[in-house]
């Protein structure tokens, strides 16, 4: 059978195909609306606080993103400061280098005019 230039099997594939895509994603939506609830229930079961001799379930899942950001920033700052406080001692080690003509300033490559100028300078310095 032809309907609007297209045979019935094409219409079947079109409508059924789109419906299946919808169903697959709707199914995922359903699951991912349920999963957080299950996780919340499991977490709440574990976290029980005793207040006035009675077990009270504290709901810790409804913390907003902003609160989380504030806690994370505070923790980050605290841990960083703690690290700074720990290392307040400044240690300066004396570096001992053995003399070598390779590291000598006197024989350095940038010391143009050596030894003539040096000897002259030394001569003037003595005066």
């Amino acid at each position: 059978m032809t309907l609007l230039f297209v045979d019935s099997s094409t219409w079947t594939i079109t409508l059924l195909g789109w419906a299946i895509v919808f169903c697959a994603l709707l199914f995922l939506v359903g699951i991912f609306l349920t999963v957080p609830k299950i996780l919340k229930w499991v977490t709440n079961r574990k976290i029980k606080v005793v207040e006035n001799g009675q077990e009270v379930v504290k709901d810790i899942n409804d913390i907003s993103g902003e609160t989380n950001a504030v806690i994370a920033t505070a923790l980050h700052l605290f841990l960083n400061e703690q690290h700074d406080d720990e290392s307040n001692v400044i240690t300066i080690k004396q570096v001992w280098k053995r003399y070598s003509p390779w590291s000598s300033k006197l024989y350095g490559m940038t010391n143009y005019g050596f030894p003539h100028n040096v000897s002259k300078q030394n001569r003037y310095a003595r005066k």
Binding site: V21, V29, F32
Partner: peptide, 12 residues
Amino acid sequence: PKLMILGAAAQI
């Protein structure tokens, strides 16, 4: 997850 349906709608 509700926004997932929009991905299905656009497959039209």
